[in-house]
Amino acid sequence: MNWSLPENIATFGGRIDAVFWVITIVTAIAFVLVEVGIVWFCIKYRQREGHRAFYTHGSKSLEVLWTAVPALAMVALGIYSADVWAYIKYRDAAPAESLHIGVRAKQFEWNIAYAGADEVLGTSDDFTLRNQLHFPAHQPILIWLEAEDVLHSFFIPQLRVKQDAVPGMTIPVWFEATRSGEFQIGCAELCGLGHYRMRARVTIHEPEEYERWLVEQIASHAVASAVPDDTESASEPEPTAHEHTESGM
């Protein structure tokens, strides 16, 4: 049973999980110190007849100690985290050679825009798939994240990446996968009654396999550009409010 972090397939995932373990060590020390201390005191200093509590108003030196130590710990943790954060999230963090993909969220689906033959996003020959995100492993991907109606949040647990999609904003999100496979995009921001089922299939290909897939798609869309909702066929079936068994995708 997966009681903790899911498999990590992001190049920067290791650094995030390292932060997790560092924090776990710091907090575990504090946790044991406090909980064990309290239980111990409860036993050692429980009421005894004729016994009288030790009268004191505190200790300057102790105050300084338990102010300084956590302060240092926190500042250190802050500096450490800030570094990782900057590497992943800062607006200009994405590597230059990234592959650009457009993601537009709306109630309750993810519309993914791919560059067409000209390999630039935002041109007439782009094609869009509904709830289908395909990209190659071993190459940085740069998502241009947008929302149409309300807030949504782009979340791929195994890639350790999450970013809210905000109407009126275009937010860059980058990551690089270390292996191919099938995953899911989840919507992590409450967006209405369909929030719980706002998912998309993520297919990470090996690079050459991805090239093949891309060529097919470009071809089929060139043909089908007359037929409007060909993209529908590619999408997962929409479960209704009552339908709860679902193809594991």
Binding site: Y55, T56, H57, G58, S59, K60
Partner: peptide
């Protein structure tokens, strides 16, 4: 430990 901190 400063005991007897001005109780009165």
């Amino acid at each position: 430990m400063e005991a007897h901190a001005m109780p009165y």
